[in-house]
């Protein structure tokens, strides 16, 4: 097990959620203007900016009691989501539902992420608004601590 396996497993897990949009296993950025082909490929799904990105913001190791050869390693993961605001389409409601679906899946689904880790914490989320590459978006930040044994 390793962080890259955990990251890839979480990406696969997120991609299985309906209407999730474009999921990346690391934080993406582009200098290309919105609506240009490169931007659209990176961040758009069904014509709307809807992208999810996984990153790691911390790692903590703890030695196994009575066993100096093993450690419990905890990765603090951050999932950032951006969803273009469209008032006429009630995008706020759509995005809130999407975040709820992701959180529900992380709470109730396989906590080993397909065997990539021992377990993970219950997810925590904050939601607000942000400008992403010049596009005003709904923004969610989901925190998750994933533990593996090495």
């Amino acid at each position: 097990m390793s962080y890259d396996a955990i990251r890839d497993a979480l990406k696969t897990r997120l991609e299985a959620v309906d209407d999730i949009g474009v999921v990346h296993s690391y934080q993406r950025w582009t200098a290309e203007a919105p609506n240009l082909p490169g931007f659209n490929t990176l961040f758009k799904s069904d014509g709307r900016l809807n992208t999810w990105m996984i990153s790691r913001v911390g790692e903590l190791s703890r030695k196994a009691p009575g066993d100096d050869s093993r450690y419990a390693v905890r990765h603090t993961l951050q999932v950032l989501a951006f969803y273009a605001i469209d008032d006429s389409a009630a995008s706020e409601e759509v995005f809130q539902d999407l975040v709820s679906d992701v959180l529900a899946d992380l709470r109730a689904g396989d906590r080993t992420l397909g065997g990539a880790c021992l377990t993970h914490s219950a997810p925590e989320a904050t939601l607000d608004y942000a400008d992403f590459c010049g596009v005003t978006c709904h923004r969610a930040e989901i925190s998750l601590v994933v533990e593996e044994i090495v």
Binding site: A64, P65, G66, D67, R70, A72, L118, I149
Partner: peptide, 17 residues
């Protein structure tokens, strides 16, 4: 034998294994 001398039960670091 118990490897350490803990005063009470200790959570196994990887209970599955």
């Amino acid at each position: 034998w118990q490897k350490g001398m803990a005063p009470g039960p200790v959570y196994p670091i990887d209970p599955v294994s």
